[in-house]
Design a protein around this nucleic acid. Structure first.
Lengths: 202, 202
DNA sequence: TTGTCCTGTGAACGATGTTCAATGAGCTAT
DNA sequence: ATAGCTCATTGAACATCGTTCACAGGACAA
């Protein structure tokens, strides 16, 4: 019996995540409604709270999938163009990140829009996924600068990721930056290549 | 009579903006309540809507002040250290931006958190203020690269601003990046100096 | 059949931003 | 001074929202 309900709940979790994912993709996180979800899933509103802690938990579940897909997408992009010089790898990775974000703007934005009540802690897998992204960047960086120790590489990784993230973020917010998306690739390339060039001189 | 009500409304606008600014500074945009504001201002809830289009309009009013103060702060920081070489100017400006953001995290975040209904347009002064920030950056950039045309400078400006913005953004979101704030200055400096060095070689 | 769990239910709750009929203050004309 | 009119202000009412929890009803053991 216990097994049975557990299975049913797992299915409901997945069904709800499916529906929520579609909504977020099409309309963004802000338009998620508990009642609409329950309707489409054919369950009661309360059922959502049997399976998720709250709406934020559901969004985190959607974000889990997005992180997964984004990681695969970036890795595949890098693999498809391998072998490349480290600087080119960085550009490839960053462009893949930009591409994923512009093709899935709402899902991508949801990754960073989650409003966490200060008491609630970020799930461990969330930081894990971010760590994976970082490690993809760290690899060509170490190659580019073999003498740097782990702490330096870590710092550079976060700096570069944040930079590219910022360009993508303000770039997709077209109402703020007004930058056409072709130029975003150029901007990313400028920052990364300038960085790589200086790094090589060291 | 018409003059009188206009004056009264202007005062209410300012009073409400005062109160809202304090709330945002202390608790963030998410904790703004129309009823609480009306209470503290000693007016009816409806009065808010006589003076602002909606809550978003009020937040925009707060953001106007923040933009103002931030612009002055950044300019003053640059002036205090003048004269500097272009690369040093860029670092000074970026550090000032970081400083302002970490000293006023909630107010700063509010600048970019405004959720605009897709139909409503961003106020012109909003883009103006951003333009001012950009021009502060563009100046040392032109000096650094005198042969670049306006379009190139514009691109570089947005790229650098977005990069620094990204570092500040993910840096202040300590639960995501976990980067101590001293290292943020270092990260910014790395990106900017590497950029400036490559630029100088051109 | 009866009794005992336990699970899913959905009406109810407490907030929220926003609206709009009603109030009343202040000005004008007599 | 008084009556009448205009219009800004009001705050109760409305529509929604996420979230809860007393309860109904099904599954299983005795």
């Amino acid at each position: 019996m216990a097994r049975d309900t557990e299975k049913r709940r797992l299915e409901l979790r997945e069904t709800l995540t499916d529906i929520a994912e579609r909504h977020v993709r099409e309309e963004g996180t802000a338009s998620l409604r508990a009642r609409a979800l329950a309707n489409e899933a054919g369950c009661a509103v309360g059922a959502i709270y049997n399976v998720f802690e709250d709406m934020t938990g559901l969004i985190l579940s959607v974000n889990g999938r997005t992180f997964q897909r984004m990681g695969e997408y970036v890795l595949k992009s890098a693999a498809d163009k391998a072998p490349q010089k480290p600087a080119d790898q960085l550009v490839t990775i960053a462009h893949a990140y930009l591409n994923f974000a512009s093709e899935n703007p709402n899902l991508w934005r949801a990754l960073f829009d989650v409003e966490m009540p200060s008491d609630r802690e970020v799930p461990a897998w969330y930081l894990d996924e971010l760590g994976k992204l970082f490690s993809i960047i760290a690899s060509p960086l170490s190659e580019l600068n073999p003498t740097a120790d782990a702490r330096e590489i870590d710092l550079l990784t976060r700096a570069l990721f944040s930079s590219v993230h910022g360009i993508v973020l303000l770039g997709l917010e077209q109402r703020i930056s007004g930058v056409p998306s072709e130029q975003l690739e150029e901007m990313i390339e400028i920052v990364l290549r300038n960085f790589a060039a200086s790094q090589a001189r060291t």
